[in-house]
Design a protein around this nucleic acid. Structure first.
Lengths: 213, 213
DNA sequence: GTCTATATGAGGATAGAC
DNA sequence: GTCTATCCTCATATAGAC
């Protein structure tokens, strides 16, 4: 019998062997998915990475799409949780601009270091077949809402250049971050470097009243 | 015998029926490729779109990969040509910042309106198998060089925030643009609107000495 | 020269017996 | 959990038709 969903919703699975194997499958799938895209993701490659024989996967998941669905939804959820945690850790004196920069930094961290899940989710959303895309929609909306709110706060505070369309600006910023897995090379610069550059670039970009200091 | 390469290298094909059909195949392939990704691109879907029976494609191209290769290389080349043309049309008084904004605007135009080729090339570069990626490398490098030079000019002129890593900034900007096909919806705003937002966002982002005016 | 109908064969997801 | 079998989808080959 495949392991059931975790009893404590936010906490993750128990640590039985079965739960570990299931996790290993998902991690492998996330890895493959993030580099090969939806259609290029082969069960055999997932199995290899997870160090399993292919049919064993069917003990844990009914279909390939079920794996993809769980990976993408998890990717978005974890990213949101990570970003929320980073925002919550901010001082109450942080400005809306600070909050956007912090969110960008956390988003990038998730994408580049924490988890293939995030990369798999963000990079493939547009390529998923209709049913799968629909399954992830609620989670995506929730994360989108977070960013919409961040930009809305900045706009209200007069920290968002009034010449910018908020939606366009928000999507361009997220695109800049989401594209990073394509070119970022840990050998050419630390994660910290690129986060620093991203924060600075974003801070400039929002460009309310002159930001240089 | 399949039609030979055009006699006049820079000029594109003649307008024989054969040349038109060949073009139709490439356009269909670009369309499919840009939405489905490399592995998801089916010959049958290309054939449908091109209004041909599948085997007819093999009269024009030896393999699926040959089509993908031509689409991606063409996509990058056309984008570069379009951007170069936009830059050449600029006044001699244009600043390095103006030039970057113009390039960004032209890049976006290519991606969103001019051509599925551009979207197919940019969105799939990372997913291509080794041989295909190698085939497009020269063209990609050439386009990359153009952007590197644009940023270098800005840096020399003191128009690039000294706190920004030039490579990181450049790649983040390009990512912002390349992601646009994922979310831009012509029904929600004109191309002009998003170009305007992109130009403004980029101008802010580079953020040399204060840019507000 | 420009294509169509049909065949082949590989690779791949899934089923079922062990 | 594994091994083997099935069945399907797909790129590509072959043999012509017009």
């Amino acid at each position: 019998m495949p392991p059931r969903s975790p009893r404590v919703p936010g906490t993750g699975d128990q640590d039985t062997k079965s739960a570990r194997t299931r996790r290993r499958i998902l991690e492998s799938a996330a890895h493959v998915l993030s580099r090969r895209g939806y259609a290029g993701t082969r069960m055999a490659e997932i199995a290899d990475l997870a160090d399993l024989r292919l049919p064993a996967i069917y003990y844990y998941f009914p279909t390939r799409d079920a794996i993809v669905e769980e990976v993408t939804i998890t990717g978005v959820r974890r990213t949101r949780e990570h970003v929320v945690a980073a925002l919550d850790a901010l001082d109450a004196t942080a400005t809306p601009t600070d909050r956007i920069c912090t969110a960008a930094s956390a988003h990038l961290e998730m994408l580049l270091r924490e988890s293939d899940f995030a990369a798999a989710a963000m990079r493939n959303a547009a390529q998923l077949p209709e049913e799968l895309r629909a399954a992830g929609l609620a989670e995506e909306r929730r994360y989108g809402e977070l960013w919409r709110e961040l930009f809305a706060e900045a706009a209200r505070a007069g920290e968002l250049d009034a010449g910018l369309d908020p939606r366009g600006a928000r999507m361009l910023v997220l695109g800049a971050l989401n594209w990073a897995p394509d070119w970022w090379d840990p050998a050419r610069g630390t994660l910290d470097d690129i986060q620093e550059t991203a924060r600075r670039l974003v801070r400039n970009a929002l460009g309310g009243p002159c930001q240089q200091f």
